[in-house]
Simulated scan of single mutants.
Amino acid sequence: MRENDVIVLGGGIAGISAAAEIAAEARVTVIEAEPSIGYHATGRSAALFIRNYGNATLRALNAASAPFLDAPEGVSDRSLLSPRGELLVANESEMDALEAYADGASGLERLSPAEAVEVVPILKRECIVAALLERDAQDIDVDRMLQGYARLLRLRGGRIVTGLRVGALRHEAGLWRIETDEGQITAPVLINAAGAWADMVARAAGAAPLGITPMRRSAAILPMPEDVALDDWPMFASAAEGWYAKPEAGKLMVSPADEDPVDPHDAWPDDMVLAEGLHRYEQAVTVPVSRVEGSWAGLRSFAPDRSPVVGFDPARTGLFWLAGQGGYGVQTAPALSRLAADLCLDRASALPQHVVSALSPGRFATAVSG
């Protein structure tokens, strides 16, 4: 097999986008165990760009990613974004959560209960104390984004191998040696972009796991009455993240916003968790849940501080972490992929140093030693 400068384990949006950026200056191969790229978390994303979503580090990444998502040069000939909006509603017990979201946020409008119902007519006015509307929240065309990055990667000479399981990982004589069914693949740099399996890959590589925890997130498709025109509604959600809903081709995608820690696997919904979440949603709207037309689940993987992990392992030469993106992986991929390329190619990053430090895997060693 050909020589590589960088091998990426994981063909989700994180691995594919980073590989595409790195391939401009290095020889890159992406290895994906599943038969297609984007099989797990990427292909099951709610696909929304929300500028104010996440902690301060993530909001900085959102802002850094926004220009590329709007003008994705090399990935698509048009914006990856389209108008949607997000409406957060709060009852009395959720006011603290609503104010916490508003703290440090930009571009939010405060709505009265009556105004919130004007935006999403099926909401129960009596259940709303206050609401926030973020008009700038936008849908992301995830498949076009993923395939565009994959096309760019190949155009730059990179390679994607799917359906290939990885065995032993060894670091010898300055090279990572990766055993696969097709033989051994080597490179000086190994990028761990394995999503829910990131800590497992770390252990196989002889590195300390960082506590990357996969958490299940479920969703269901609900039909709506024929006289309900919902395509122009924003995504709407409870401020305390008890549920959220988003129009999908004349129907409604509803999630219980579950975050149940699970082992890495090909996720499926827990019927009880889904039913409880749909009940919480049903209490907030005037249209009862009559039936579920389909359901699915995905895994969102979080580091202990809920910020992504991007950078070289402090104790394992040539092992690079690109993991822990949680529910922010798609919308932060442009910024994280550029950062990964900058660090792997020893270039200065355009991101502020405090953001780079907040993403470094070394922060966990610092926390322990401190």
Rank of each mutant, 00 (worst) to 15 (best):
residue 103 D to E: 13
residue 182 E to S: 15
residue 368 V to S: 12
residue 77 D to A: 14
residue 12 G to E: 04
residue 89 V to D: 00
residue 276 E to C: 11
residue 325 Q to W: 00
residue 192 N to A: 03
residue 367 A to L: 15
residue 271 D to N: 10
residue 201 V to F: 00
residue 50 I to Q: 14
residue 351 L to K: 09
residue 208 A to Q: 12
residue 214 P to W: 05
residue 138 Q to M: 10
residue 262 V to I: 12
residue 113 P to E: 06
residue 247 P to D: 06
residue 299 L to K: 00
residue 276 E to G: 10
residue 152 L to F: 02
residue 311 G to D: 06
residue 337 S to Y: 07
residue 348 A to V: 10
residue 288 P to K: 08
residue 178 I to K: 04
residue 201 V to C: 01
residue 16 I to R: 09
residue 229 A to Y: 12
residue 185 I to R: 15
residue 99 E to R: 13
residue 103 D to W: 11
residue 168 A to G: 09
residue 19 A to I: 07
residue 272 M to H: 12
residue 42 T to V: 07
residue 73 E to M: 10
residue 2 R to E: 13
residue 349 S to L: 07
residue 305 D to K: 06
residue 240 A to K: 08
residue 14 A to F: 02
residue 265 H to K: 11
residue 78 R to S: 15
residue 71 A to D: 14
residue 196 A to K: 09
residue 277 G to K: 08
residue 117 V to H: 08
residue 189 V to P: 00
residue 59 R to P: 03
residue 223 P to Y: 01
residue 201 V to P: 03
residue 169 L to C: 05
residue 289 V to H: 06
residue 225 P to C: 10
residue 329 G to R: 03
residue 90 A to T: 04
residue 20 A to I: 08
residue 16 I to D: 00
residue 313 D to F: 07
residue 306 R to S: 09
residue 285 V to K: 04
residue 253 M to F: 15
residue 206 G to C: 11
residue 298 G to A: 14
residue 182 E to G: 14
residue 218 S to H: 10
residue 321 W to C: 03
residue 15 G to V: 04
residue 276 E to Y: 11
residue 356 V to Y: 01
residue 20 A to S: 12
residue 100 A to K: 13
residue 358 A to C: 04
residue 4 N to H: 15
residue 222 L to N: 03
residue 93 S to T: 12
residue 53 Y to S: 03
residue 305 D to E: 09
residue 319 L to H: 05
residue 313 D to T: 00
residue 78 R to K: 14
residue 309 V to Q: 03
residue 38 G to I: 08
residue 128 I to N: 05
residue 24 A to R: 15
residue 186 T to E: 15
residue 243 W to Y: 15
residue 233 W to Q: 01
residue 140 I to K: 04
residue 21 E to H: 06
residue 232 D to R: 13
residue 100 A to G: 08
residue 316 R to T: 12
residue 177 R to V: 05
residue 159 R to L: 13
residue 364 F to A: 02
residue 97 A to K: 03
residue 83 P to G: 08
residue 327 G to S: 14
residue 300 R to G: 04
residue 41 A to D: 07
residue 32 E to L: 01
residue 292 V to F: 06
residue 108 L to N: 01
residue 286 T to C: 10
residue 359 L to W: 00
residue 74 G to Y: 08
residue 316 R to E: 07
residue 233 W to A: 05
residue 130 A to M: 01
residue 272 M to G: 10
residue 160 I to M: 05
residue 334 P to A: 10
residue 66 A to P: 00
residue 314 P to T: 08
residue 68 F to T: 09
residue 276 E to F: 10
residue 80 L to I: 07
residue 197 W to Y: 14
residue 3 E to M: 09
residue 352 P to M: 07
residue 38 G to A: 07
residue 153 L to G: 00
residue 9 L to T: 02
residue 239 A to K: 04
residue 272 M to Y: 12
residue 183 G to E: 03
residue 100 A to D: 15
